[in-house]
Design a protein around this nucleic acid. Sequence first.
DNA 1: TAAGCGCTTGCAACCGGTTGCATACGCTTG
DNA 2: CAAGCGTATGCAACCGGTTGCAAGCGCTTA
Lengths: 340, 340
Amino acid sequence: MRSSKPSVTIYDIARVAGVSASTVSRALSGHLHVAAATRESIRSAAAALRYRPNLMAQDLAMGRSQTIGLLLPDTVSAFWGRLVKGIETALRETDYSLLMASAEGSASGHKALELLVSHHVDGLVVAAGSDIPDEELLGLDDETPVVAVGRSLAGREDGLIRVGNFEGAYQVTQHLIALGHTRVAHISGPLWHVEAKERLRGYRRALEDAGIPSDPHLVVEGDFTMRAGLIATEHLLSAGRDFTAVFASSDQMALGANLALYHRGLEVPRDVSLVGFDDQPFAAYTRPPLTTVAQPLFEMGQAAVRYLIGRIRGRAEVLPRFTTTFCLRESTAPRRPASS
Amino acid sequence: MRSSKPSVTIYDIARVAGVSASTVSRALSGHLHVAAATRESIRSAAAALRYRPNLMAQDLAMGRSQTIGLLLPDTVSAFWGRLVKGIETALRETDYSLLMASAEGSASGHKALELLVSHHVDGLVVAAGSDIPDEELLGLDDETPVVAVGRSLAGREDGLIRVGNFEGAYQVTQHLIALGHTRVAHISGPLWHVEAKERLRGYRRALEDAGIPSDPHLVVEGDFTMRAGLIATEHLLSAGRDFTAVFASSDQMALGANLALYHRGLEVPRDVSLVGFDDQPFAAYTRPPLTTVAQPLFEMGQAAVRYLIGRIRGRAEVLPRFTTTFCLRESTAPRRPASS
DNA sequence: TAAGCGCTTGCAACCGGTTGCATACGCTTG
DNA sequence: CAAGCGTATGCAACCGGTTGCAAGCGCTTA
């Protein structure tokens, strides 16, 4: 409301310290060849005036923004929290900062991407963003390094963060089989989703390797949401499918499944064993605590940043392949002798 | 890796269209007094060259950034999701974009705030950010409008988004009382937190108004996390406190409480009634679905944006006062005749 | 037919920094 | 004592836009 621009510039500092603006710039940015005395008087003048560099001007002059962008698929859903945290943690050690945009908030991913690009981010992390074709991202990559997580990036696989979705799903299915379950239902993620497909593949392979014929009726497609888990399970139940265990492709869907079972009077794990995927924070606090597969989202976020910073500095980086870890909790139990 | 700057400028367009850069600028920004024919040829040249305005340059020239900042307390915890969504939705109708920073990611809120300020955000939403003193935010407010949610902002209460925490807590406690519960435990949020204090006050007042003496042993301080809910409840149980209902000051804590009760063999709501606060997405999917109090986070986010945009345009805005709504689900039941 | 007007357009300054080049200075060295 | 060198600083151009001012143009009007 008041005067809208008291902002202090290097020229103000220059005047106070009795030097030129370029000297101020050099002194502040730590350049060589500035006399210690001058530097000190500039520093103190800057402090006295509460100077804050104008990042816009800096970016414009230097050509790049000291910012990395993060494109999220939906509005900051709980799922991505740990990834973001990893990114922020890694970024804290650099002098880059984070600009986030979410695809859902912007009609479609395109507008969000546009925003990030217009802000001249020096690097970009794309989490899912399924409606943005690979080529669009690849076109970008000539100028700006990109790393993708949870999506494809054909032709630039080195910028792809991968997790052992197949192995995780295989392992958790195997666990259920080892407990004696032979009728294992699977609620998958959307099948256009690469990771959902991998998990389904892991599930199928585990059954196959154990010599258990897989029943297509036991696989229902969901979309990772709690609601989808609920509906899929209700569907399985009301269709009279015979199963003693459920493997949901996300913890959210497992939560929905749990509720459907509860409403049907079925106890987990007494009557039905239940496993999820992701190990979201709440998984340890459901009733009963959920056996699931953890993705190292935090480390993935860190790795994404390291990769980008490396590429920005012109190095050729290679991303590690991440592995999942099995989290045994209380939602699985041996199959009951007489399954109803 | 390749040539790092193919970026197209208005000068490139000017050359192609055979006009000067200033005309390009005017044509593109929709200014008056540009001949229709000229405008068209500029538009098509811009499209052909895949021109994207350099926001840095624009911001610098125009003095402000067309960006509003959002300061989040911790890393994108699930809680703030709906607020962010509301903000993004409201923003979508404007030509502002969103810059998010989280306090946790940046050692302390100060660095995050600094980032936002340096980016010259035109407006700022501060969610919590407890370690930043009111004055620091107020000092800013001379230049940049600020709106706070879930924290104090002494001396500038008009920029504060308030919810009826007291009323919500009162109502939910009253509900438990109406079901016959007289021994109602409360797991509060951290007591330096304004909203946590309000909820505690609502709880106390409801008991008082019903003529039920409040027992200080039944109030345990938590910090809104699931873990805190678990620990607080275990503490109540092992201390042998006599209670038939629990009011947790957040859904997360209610989840923790639910688990503690489960491990103790207590059924919700048969043995103990349980209510939460916030109505987070998962609340409808817990076992049993959680009775709670919903905060209109989405609307709050929208209102925050409208307020800021108004203030940016120089209008004096006034924020509505938000009310909570009671969500009755399955975690509460009448007190059993013979409470153990 | 000349003055006057409004619409288009270009010139140039500016936003707040960075940086190559040139200058001025003080010192060492032959 | 002059040439030579390195260090400290200033000048001015530049990053990519925006915008006030003035000039050029075609047209109307007296």
